[in-house]
C-alpha cells in the first residue's frame, strides 16, 4: 500500500465499520444470553412465541425497540438489539460507500451503490 493513498481510501473506513458493528452486536448477544440465564435459570432453546422476532417492518421495529415500547423481557430485548445492530452493519456499509463514491465523484458507482441500497431498504421495509 502506498502511504499517500491511505487517507483517501474507502477500505479503512469499511473495515472499522464492519469490525465495530460485529463487535457491538456480539457483545449484546452475549449480554442477552447471560441475562437470560440469570432471569430464567436455564439456557434452553425454546419454541416459546416470545423468542421469535415479530413485527411489521424493520425500521419501525427498531424505533419501537429503542424507544422502550418493546414489551419483552430485558434479555430478549438485548438479543434483539444485537440482531438489529448486526443487520445495520452491512446496511451502513452500503450507505457510507454511496457517500464515499459521491465524494470522489465516481458517479457510476454512486448509481450501483444506490441500487443496492434501494433494493435493501425496500426489502427491509416491506417484509
Amino acid at each position: 500500500m502506498s502511504a499517500p493513498d491511505r487517507g483517501t481510501r474507502i477500505e479503512p473506513m469499511i473495515s472499522w465499520l464492519l469490525i465495530g458493528g460485529v463487535g457491538v452486536s456480539l457483545a449484546l448477544e452475549v449480554a442477552g444470553m447471560v441475562l437470560f440465564y440469570l432471569t430464567y435459570g436455564n439456557l434452553n432453546i425454546t419454541q416459546d412465541a416470545a423468542v421469535f422476532i415479530r413485527g411489521h417492518d424493520f425500521f419501525s421495529f427498531i424505533y419501537s425497540v429503542f424507544s422502550g415500547r418493546f414489551h419483552d423481557a430485558l434479555p430478549l430485548t438485548l438479543m434483539t438489539a444485537g440482531l438489529i445492530v448486526l443487520m445495520l452493519t452491512p446496511f451502513l456499509r452500503v450507505i457510507s460507500s454511496a457517500v464515499w463514491f459521491a465524494v470522489v465523484r465516481n458517479f457510476k458507482y454512486v448509481v450501483i451503490t444506490l441500487f443496492v441500497l434501494i433494493v435493501l431498504t425496500l426489502s427491509l421495509r416491506l417484509h
Binding site: 442477552g32 432453546i45 419454541q47 421469535f52 430478549l76 438479543m79 452491512p90
Partner: peptide, 24 residues
C-alpha cells in the same frame, strides 16, 4: 455479508427467527 442481509430482511418478520438459536 450483504447477500445474507438481503436474505435476512425477508426472514426478519417471517416468524422464523428464534433468538435463542440465533444468538449462540
Amino acid at each position: 455479508g450483504m447477500t445474507a442481509l438481503g436474505g435476512a430482511s425477508v426472514y426478519f418478520f417471517s416468524g422464523l427467527l428464534n433468538l435463542t438459536l440465533m444468538a449462540p
